Amino acid sequence: MPRNSTRRRMFTRVGVGLAAVGLLAACTSNTPEDDNTEPADDGQQNAASSNDDPGENVVIGFSGPQADHGWLAAINSFAEQTAEQYSDVELRMAEGTNDPSAQISAIETFINDGVDAIVLLPTDGAALTQVAMQAMEAGIPVVNVDREFSDPAAARATILGDNYGMGVSAGEYACQLVAENDLGDGAVIAEIAGIDSLPLTQERSQGFADALEACGQNVDNRVAAEFTVESGEEAASNLLQAANEIDIIWNHDDDQGVGVKAAFDNAGRDEFFFIGGAGSANAMRWIESGEMEATVIYPATQAGDGIKLARLIAQDRGLSDLVQVEVPRRIVLDAPVVTADNLEEYLPMGFES
Rank of each mutant, 00 (worst) to 15 (best):
G259A: 10
L177F: 06
Q45P: 00
L239D: 08
P141K: 11
D321T: 14
L333A: 12
I313L: 08
E245P: 03
F208C: 03
A79M: 04
E233G: 04
Q315R: 12
P65R: 05
S105N: 14
N238V: 04
R9I: 09
D196F: 05
N98R: 12
R285K: 14
G96T: 05
D34Y: 07
E38R: 06
R329Y: 04
G70Q: 11
A40K: 01
S197K: 00
A335K: 01
N251K: 00
R204A: 10
T158D: 01
D124P: 02
P141W: 11
M10K: 03
A283M: 02
G22C: 11
M166Y: 02
A214I: 12
V131M: 07
E56C: 00
M166P: 02
W250N: 12
A262H: 08
S280G: 09
I313K: 08
L212R: 03
G171W: 10
Y86H: 14
L120I: 14
I331P: 02
P141L: 12
D321L: 07
G167I: 10
Q302C: 10
F227V: 09
N30P: 07
R285L: 06
E288A: 12
Q324G: 03
A102E: 14
A335T: 13
N282R: 11
A211P: 03
S289Y: 03
D254L: 06
N98C: 00
L120P: 01
D34L: 04
D151H: 07
V14P: 00
E293L: 01
S280V: 07
A340P: 00
A283C: 05
N163P: 09
S5R: 06
A20D: 14
Y164M: 02
A135I: 07
T339S: 11
A26W: 00
T109D: 15
E84V: 04
A190W: 07
S49V: 03
F273W: 12
S150N: 13
H69D: 09
V332Y: 01
N238T: 14
R147P: 00
F264A: 09
H252Y: 08
V338Q: 10
G306E: 10
D210S: 09
Y86F: 15
L240N: 09
F274N: 02
L239V: 12
G277C: 08
A187E: 06
P348W: 10
L183Q: 03
G114S: 04
D34T: 13
D270C: 03
S77L: 12
A25G: 07
L212Y: 05
L312K: 07
G318P: 02
N4P: 02
I159G: 09
